Lab assay of single mutants.
Amino acid sequence: SEIVVAMYDFQATEAHDLRLERGQEYIILEKNDLHWWRARDKYGSEGYIPSNYVTGKK
């Protein structure tokens, strides 16, 4: 599975969105859409994140 790191904070506005915290790692579950990826955080929460807010883990 692909691990990404959040470059920016993202506040979830929709129920299906996942909040991003800058510097935290997330697991990508689905990339069915170019701009919104389904991800899981370290607490096990899942939701959609803006793909341009994250970068591949170095």
Rank of each mutant, 00 (worst) to 15 (best):
S1L: 15
S1W: 15
S1E: 14
S1G: 14
S1A: 14
E2S: 09
E2D: 11
E2C: 15
E2Y: 13
E2W: 14
E2A: 09
I3Y: 09
I3G: 04
I3L: 09
I3W: 11
V4Q: 03
V4A: 06
V4D: 00
V5L: 09
V5I: 14
V5Y: 09
V5R: 06
A6P: 01
A6D: 02
A6W: 02
A6G: 03
A6S: 05
A6C: 06
M7A: 06
Y8K: 11
Y8S: 07
D9L: 04
D9P: 05
D9A: 05
D9E: 06
D9R: 02
F10V: 06
F10H: 07
F10P: 00
F10M: 05
Q11D: 14
Q11G: 09
Q11F: 14
Q11S: 11
Q11L: 13
Q11T: 12
Q11W: 13
Q11P: 14
Q11R: 09
Q11A: 13
A12R: 06
A12V: 08
A12K: 09
A12L: 05
A12W: 04
T13M: 12
T13W: 10
E14N: 15
E14R: 15
E14H: 14
E14M: 12
E14D: 15
E14Y: 12
E14P: 04
A15F: 09
A15H: 11
A15M: 12
H16C: 15
H16N: 13
H16G: 15
H16E: 11
H16D: 12
H16L: 08
D17I: 15
D17A: 14
D17E: 15
D17V: 14
D17W: 15
D17S: 13
L18H: 01
L18F: 05
L18P: 02
L18N: 00
L18V: 03
L18W: 02
L18S: 00
L18A: 00
R19L: 07
R19D: 14
R19G: 12
L20H: 00
L20R: 00
L20M: 10
E21A: 06
E21I: 13
E21D: 09
E21F: 09
E21C: 11
R22T: 10
R22H: 08
R22L: 08
R22F: 08
R22S: 09
G23L: 05
G23Q: 04
G23P: 00
G23C: 12
G23W: 07
Q24P: 01
Q24L: 09
Y26P: 00
Y26F: 03
Y26T: 01
I27P: 00
I27V: 12
I27H: 08
I27N: 04
I28A: 00
I28F: 02
I28P: 00
L29Y: 02
L29N: 01
L29W: 04
L29R: 01
L29A: 00
L29V: 09
E30L: 06
E30Y: 07
E30H: 07
E30S: 10
E30N: 10
E30I: 05
E30F: 06
K31W: 06
K31E: 03
K31I: 05
K31M: 08
N32R: 11
N32E: 11
N32M: 13
N32T: 14
N32D: 11
D33I: 05
D33Y: 09
D33Q: 08
D33M: 09
D33F: 08
D33C: 14
D33W: 07
L34W: 09
L34K: 13
L34C: 15
L34R: 11
L34I: 12
H35D: 10
H35C: 15
H35S: 09
H35E: 09
H35T: 09
W36I: 07
W36F: 08
W37M: 04
W37R: 02
W37E: 01
W37T: 01
W37Y: 07
W37G: 00
R38Q: 06
R38P: 02
A39D: 02
A39S: 02
A39V: 12
A39L: 04
R40K: 10
R40W: 03
R40G: 03
R40P: 02
R40V: 09
R40N: 02
D41F: 01
D41A: 01
D41L: 02
D41T: 01
D41E: 01
K42M: 12
K42L: 07
K42E: 06
K42H: 07
K42Y: 06
Y43R: 06
Y43I: 05
Y43D: 11
G44L: 03
G44E: 02
G44P: 01
G44C: 06
S45W: 08
S45E: 12
S45D: 13
S45H: 15
S45Q: 15
S45Y: 12
S45F: 12
S45P: 01
S45M: 14
E46V: 10
E46T: 08
E46Y: 04
E46N: 03
G47P: 00
G47I: 02
G47C: 06
G47V: 02
Y48C: 14
Y48R: 11
Y48N: 08
Y48S: 05
Y48D: 04
Y48T: 07
Y48G: 02
I49K: 02
I49Q: 02
I49C: 04
P50K: 04
P50E: 03
P50F: 05
P50Q: 04
P50L: 05
P50N: 07
P50C: 10
P50S: 03
S51T: 07
S51Y: 06
S51N: 06
S51W: 05
S51A: 13
S51V: 09
S51M: 07
S51C: 13
N52E: 12
N52M: 11
N52P: 06
N52Y: 10
N52Q: 12
Y53P: 02
Y53F: 13
Y53N: 04
Y53R: 07
V54T: 05
V54L: 05
V54N: 01
V54M: 03
V54A: 01
V54Y: 02
V54E: 02
T55G: 06
T55R: 11
T55C: 14
T55P: 03
T55I: 13
G56T: 15
G56D: 13
G56C: 14
G56W: 12
G56E: 14
K57D: 10
K57H: 11
K57R: 11
K58D: 14
K58Q: 13
K58L: 14
K58A: 13
K58P: 13
K58E: 13
